[in-house]
Design a protein around this nucleic acid. Structure first.
Length: 565
RNA sequence: GCGCCCGUAGCUCAACUGGACAGAGCAUCAGACUUCGGAUCUGAGGGUUGGGGGUUCAAAUCCCUCCGGGCGCGCCA
């Protein structure tokens, strides 16, 4: 539709120019969907943008363009409105055609194929295995997973990747904490290190070690067995939590592999990066450490890449640079990094370093989300990781269910704070947007059950062969509006993918559900009408597309579309 | 102090990337059930988009500047 209108507008401008009515021979035309349906199905602001160059009022230019338009039959009406918009209204027949096409596609029409096989890597969650996933991790997991789903659905080749570190300083601390709990369980004197992990899960891991090894580890000073046990147990839990949320990964990349030479390598990739940075004069050595120089990168401060001390351990930052080089070398068309606002500074450092090393970072796009708070009974729930008073993601899913967790995490723009209202989340009432949307789907499903009972079966199978089997001219203007809404999801999905803004979909579904409920509630709109099978079939046809649209949209979000609730 | 994000109805948030009179839900008030599932619907009130300047035919959106909030500014990740 937009392409069609844009082309006839361009042609009109060219024609007006040829007849001497306009100075410009060509102009870039943008078409948008008006907010207000009274303004038609599409609008163009060409006349407004041309006003300056033409030296004429926008409405006068709009009139000239309109007079030179060659309007095809799909377009029912062209009008000039407001400051000089040119509005277009499509003919009902056009929408009948669109509706037929959507019905033939089933739920596929909500999946516009815009990826053309391009490759995308989505790196998300990337939580180190130091403890159970928290509510904050949940936003990351759902956001990343949904972006991946959207890319997959729109024709991209997607790699979902989890980057983590099971070695290093924090992991030693984790191992030490498990060892202390292990000794304590055996009744021996032991005390947690100062920054040790206090969570109850550490004790659980210690107990499982006692089950397997009795007291045979009591004299071991090597922390490795404790660390490994902890990492295995926690990683298993993280995977379980993700499963419960419908979140999955293709790759788990371990930071340690970047720090140790792999098969054909003579040195680790981290060492290679340090060498490269040194060649570009981006390193500085002082205070016994090796620093990434801030000044040549336009960063406010130097940042430590290799710690001082006998071990000369790299900081997290160094392998992260190596990891991003690795990602770039793998040749993805698009690389998405999903992370919380607290990691912005690090990401800037990584990107700046990559740029300075001559890499093209244009394919990397960061999606940075703000923090999550929980509200219960009108009060903020206090959460502290250190004290282990946080609410785990498992607890949240347990309390409100997968569908609600996913929908709520997506029901906000990512750079906006997210206040998760537990009371609202648990309410099975219209004010809960998840149930409102799901209920619309259940109602539609119920209509089809009733239709079957009434012997009114929609001949969907034969429609492809005989598209005129259902007379869509029976649909009212209100019903055509509903059809536009259902079909329009396709464009919203495309926009959500291009802008990396999945939240647009749940908002759109909520609007669609509302329109449907309002329509459904009017007695005159009864879909099943035994006295008028023709009308019933036309309405069932529309109902099918609405149902496919809602189900297809929810599926993209990883939220179920129940037939009964 | 410096960097990034945010400030929109009493509350929680949208606004298709600069378009038409800024929209939803909750809350408040007033209504609709012999239902293809009322887990629904109808109506009302509620705004100088934090303040001030600028750019533009057009600003919640872009620029500057104040005010207020969040996050970061670790040899933690």
């Amino acid at each position: 539709m937009k392409e069609l209108i844009a082309s006839i507008l361009s042609a009109a401008v060219a024609r007006a120019h040829a007849s001497g009515k306009l100075n410009s021979a060509s102009v870039t035309v943008t078409i948008e969907a008006p907010k207000d349906p009274a303004h038609g199905d599409a609008a163009s602001n060409v006349a407004l943008t041309m006003a300056r160059g033409e030296g004429k009022p926008p409405r006068a230019i709009a009139t000239v363009i309109k007079d030179h338009l060659a309007t095809p039959p799909e377009i029912a009406e062209v009008s000039i409105a407001g400051p000089g918009f040119i509005n277009f209204r499509m003919a009902p027949e056009y929408w009948h055609g669109e509706l037929r096409r959507a019905a033939a596609d089933g739920a596929c029409f909500v999946r516009p194929q815009i990826g053309h096989g391009k490759s995308v890597q989505v790196e998300f969650l990337s939580a180190n295995p130091t403890g159970p996933l928290t509510v904050g991790h949940g936003r990351n997991a759902v956001l990343g997973d949904t972006l991946a789903r959207l890319f997959e659905a729109t024709g991209y080749r997607v790699t979902r990747e989890y980057y983590f570190n099971d070695g290093g300083r924090q992991m030693k601390l984790l191992g030490a904490s498990v060892r202390v709990r292990y000794l304590q369980e055996l009744g021996r004197e032991a005390e947690l290190p100062e920054d040790g992990y206090q969570g109850e899960y550490i004790r659980e891991i210690a107990k499982s070690l006692i089950e397997r090894h009795r007291d045979s580890l009591a004299e071991t000073t090597d922390l490795e067995v404790f660390r490994t046990a902890a990492v295995d147990a926690i990683m298993t839990e993280i995977r379980k939590t993700c499963d419960g949320l419908g979140v999955r990964f293709d790759n788990f990349t371990n930071e340690r592999d970047l720090m140790t030479p792999q098969a054909a390598e003579t040195r680790s990739r981290v060492d290679a990066v340090l060498e490269q940075l040194r060649q570009h004069d981006l390193l500085a050595d002082y205070d016994g450490a090796t620093w990434l120089r801030g000044e040549p990168l336009g960063l406010p401060k130097d940042a430590v890449l290799v710690r001082s001390g006998p071990d000369r351990e790299p900081t997290y930052r160094t392998p992260d640079i190596a990891y991003h080089i690795d990602k770039l070398k793998r040749g993805f068309d698009l690389i998405i990094d999903v992370f919380g606002a607290d990691h912005i500074a690090e990401h800037q450092q990584v990107i700046a370093a990559l740029k300075a090393l001559g890499y093209d970072v244009a394919t990397i796009r960061a999606i940075i989300y703000q923090f999550v708070t929980l509200t219960r009974a009108g009060e903020k729930v206090k959460m502290s990781t250190r004290k282990a008073t946080y609410v785990t993601l498992d607890e949240l899913v347990e309390e409100v269910g997968k569908d609600v967790v996913r929908f709520f995490f997506l029901f906000r723009k990512h750079d906006s704070h997210l206040d998760f209202d537990l009371d609202l989340a648990k309410r099975q009432a219209p004010e809960n947007p998840v149930f409102y949307v799901q209920y619309a789907h259940a109602r539609l499903a119920s209509v089809f059950r009733e239709a079957e009972k009434a012997g009114l079966v929609l001949p969907v199978e034969t429609l492809a062969a005989n598209p005129q089997a259902v007379d869509l001219t029976r649909l009212s203007a209100e019903e055509i509006e509903l059809a536009k809404r259902a079909i329009g999801l396709s464009e919203v999905v495309a926009g959500a993918v291009e802008s990396l803004e999945p939240h647009r979909i749940p908002f759109y579904l909520l609007d669609m559900a509302g329109e449907f409920h309002r329509y459904y509630n009017k007695a005159a709109n009864r879909i099943i009408n035994p006295d008028d099978p023709g009308l019933s079939q036309a309405r069932l046809f529309l109902a099918k597309v609405m149902r496919d649209s809602i189900a297809g949209g929810l599926e993209l979000l990883g939220v179920s579309a129940p037939d009964r609730m």
